[in-house]
Write a protein that binds this DNA or RNA. Structure first.
Lengths: 368, 368
DNA sequence: CTGAAAGCGCTTACAG
DNA sequence: CTGAAAGCGCTTACAG
């Protein structure tokens, strides 16, 4: 074992080495060590070498807390998701992780565990950790009190030089500063419905989705708009909301079949719901797409794996996550901290396009 | 607008309020404010009220960095995953999030983005953030250099009062301190293989899985052990390793069919691979389970959703995540910081059971 | 029950 | 190119 090796082990045995330890070993001041570590200041080559050697010998790793306290940003971005097991969220998070890694940031990920109203608690925890920015992933809770609390939080964060970024939901109402990256949700549903109508379907069952969230509101709106554009009325019996889940899709399709509800196609609120519908249809002896056409929404992996594979609305989920990080850590500070809180309501609002992916689950409406 | 409301807005406009601000407003010392906030010390009811009012008025949120620096633990647990989009990982992470929330912790989640050797970099980032513990999720890279670096890191962390927890992989070799929660991986594969053998299958294709990782090593070992126990030889042609992926499962099954490889059952390295095999079998005109039986591994949601549904090995993924957090933040410090680095090699090592879930993809081997 | 003060481990003007 | 010193926002003995 080398002398250096032994000393490193000793340092290890005593706990974490500090800047001070490194400075002493290299016989320089802590200021100098800090400078070589941050590499943003001229240091004599000779000195630099000594410091680097000491750093290695002691196995020194900077304390991010001390660094953050001393004024440098935390290099941490906060993320709030509902359920990480839901591919809609995990694909977005994947994009966030990729872009965060590229920007040298690490992610603090909080989950509401499916209880959306806990969003504010999680934001508070993330804010406590002084995340540079907090990204809220997924649809917005349709609750005025909740939204106004969110707006309050956004203001406080802006004033403190941090920011709130919305990902997969529309920007906050006017006076609150926030950035947002969204997708043309309503338009996606409009296209999907119109695709079915173009195939001759007139009685289309809208199935699934939780009405408490903006995602659902916009999808249903697109479904209705498609009818309106063709001068058709929506039969209220054909709009069955509830949950975004495979189980819900299965049960309600089975019930519709049992009730002999008249429909030739299903627009599901998301792919999981559509997969459930597919299974209920099969169990009920209906052929897809011969007897019934089915369209999903999201284009998560399962959509390509069902039998038949699902025609669905593609959302660039990963890209949306990446864009959110760009908005979050974006154009580096101009130095005027908290400054943009005065710039007006919104700090950039992106809308990504969606498009229909045609696969095997849709076909012309059966004749007769 | 109340007077208090106005002041709160003013404070907000000036950036984050500090303990000092609260103290001034409540006309007490910062020590007192700290005490009422932490509630671990007697404070006069009257004083407490004044402080609480000031906190609310200023919208004060503690700075976790300052708190951590001043000696309190960071209440942050680090997590390293490969691909968060893979349900194997996201289910474990879900369990981690649940338990972490219950313990009042927040998770810093780093991803290697599928490049396992980057694990060490991520650990370093997490260590920099002074995570209380770092949980490594998923199989271990079978690489001695990597393992010994990991051991070095584990020692350094232990000395610094933090710890490394392994989740879904075996404990580190002897002299490195670490806690681990694993599952009886080899046994699961043994059972699955034996189930097929019990149904009369003798030529079982082992399909998929990346040989560079402990997960695969143990599953293949279980497959071999099952043969050994029955005094059967493993035909090397029947062991097709490569990747854990649906695509790999599809392609290699299609190829096996094209090559007229002789087999009546498939043990897939995981459910995704099995789902790909199922599709190739269907595309190749084989009926499952009549012509070929298929068994998956993991029991992630997709296993219950394929047609037919997959017989597979269930791993208590969520529970494994929860257990990892318990090991991570576990029995609160006895105060002897870094002490357990001397206690021996391992800090508790749990092994959770797996079991076979019988669904529709397995049946007796076809006669003849 | 309350306060003054030291200290956690960094960074960064300010001098030299 | 280098160092002494202040300061970031907390917590916690130590006094009272």
């Amino acid at each position: 074992m080398t002398k250096e090796g032994r000393t490193a082990d000793m340092a290890v045995a005593e706990g974490r080495a500090t800047l001070q330890d490194v400075a002493e070993r290299a016989r320089v001041s802590t200021a100098t060590v800090s400078r070589v570590l941050n590499g943003n200041y001229p240091v004599a080559a000779e000195t630099r070498k000594r410091v680097e050697k000491a750093v290695r010998a002691l196995g020194y790793v900077a304390n991010a807390h001390a660094r953050a306290l001393a004024g440098v940003t935390s290099r941490t971005v906060g993320v709030v998701v509902s359920e990480i097991v839901d591919p809609f969220f995990s694909l977005i998070v994947h994009g966030i992780q990729r872009e965060a890694a590229a920007a040298g940031r690490i992610c603090l990920i909080g989950s509401t565990l499916g209880e959306e109203h806990r969003e504010l608690e999680i934001i508070e925890l993330l804010y406590e950790q002084r995340a540079e920015a907090v990204i809220l992933v997924g649809g917005a809770l349709l609750d005025e009190r909740h939204q106004s609390k969110l707006a309050g939080r956004a203001k406080a964060m802006a004033a403190a030089g941090s920011k709130l970024v919305l990902c997969g939901r529309p920007p906050l109402a006017a006076p609150a500063p926030s950035a947002a990256v969204h997708y043309d949700n309503e338009h996606g549903a409009l296209n999907a419905t119109d695709h079915l109508m173009g195939l001759g379907h007139r009685r289309i069952l809208y199935l699934g989705g939780w009405p408490g969230i903006s995602t659902q509101r916009d999808r249903v709106a697109g479904y209705r708009l498609a009818h309106e554009r063709r001068g058709l009325k929506v039969d209220p019996e054909l709009v069955v909301e509830g949950e975004f889940s495979r189980r819900f899709g299965y049960e309600r399709t089975a019930r519709a079949l049992a009730d002999a509800l008249d429909f030739t196609a299903i627009l599901a609120a998301n792919d999981a719901t559509a997969a459930g519908a597919l299974q209920a249809l099969r169990d009920g002896g209906r052929r897809v797409p011969d007897d019934v056409s089915v369209v999903g929404y999201d284009d998560v992996p399962v959509a390509a794996e069902t039998v038949p594979a699902l025609t669905t609305v593609h959302i660039p989920l990963q890209e949306m996550g990446r864009a959110a990080v760009r908005l979050a850590v974006g154009p580096q500070d101009t130095g005027r901290k908290g400054d943009w809180s005065d710039d007006g309501p919104s700090q950039g609002s992106l809308v990504l396009g969606t498009h229909l992916v045609l696969r095997g689950s849709t076909a012309p409406a059966p004749v007769g």
